[in-house]
């Protein structure tokens, strides 16, 4: 239906891509001249890792950190609640005094 790329890179320093269609496991998506093979299905609007992200590493989207990896994430892996947690509200009290 459309020839637009199936993923979106919002800022050059991001380590995730955004699916702009429902993508299937095993599908190959382009990324700056490289090809990434999806390890799981990634629904529209969801994120996939461009590069390996170590446990505790920051996940970058819009050029800004959106949380930290809760386990090692491989390139092509779906990034969501199972492997990414907020640095703010998921750890109440850690960043803010009384």
């Amino acid at each position: 239906m459309t020839h637009a790329p199936p993923v979106l890179l919002l800022a050059p320093e991001d380590n995730v891509l955004i699916a702009v269609a429902d993508l299937a496991a095993g599908q190959i998506v382009p990324d700056a001249g490289r090809a990434i093979r999806l390890r799981q299905a990634v629904p529209l609007g969801h994120k996939l890792a461009r590069h390996p992200i170590p446990a505790g590493g920051r996940v970058i989207k819009y050029g800004a950190p959106i949380g930290s990896a809760t386990c090692a994430i491989a390139a092509g892996e779906w990034v969501h609640l199972h492997n990414l947690a907020s640095d703010y509200l998921a750890t109440p009290g850690a960043d803010h005094g009384a």
Binding site: I18, A19, P43, L44, G45, H46, K47, K61, A64, P65, I66, G67, V79, H80, L81, L84, A85, S86, D87, Y88, L89, A90, P92, G93, H96
Partner: peptide
């Protein structure tokens, strides 16, 4: 934080958003 809630709703996560700061 005091309330124990963000503005984050279940539907947001279904749509692909994972964290408050995202």
């Amino acid at each position: 934080t005091t309330l124990g809630h963000g503005s984050f709703a279940v539907g947001n996560a279904d749509g692909g958003l994972t964290t408050q700061e995202e």
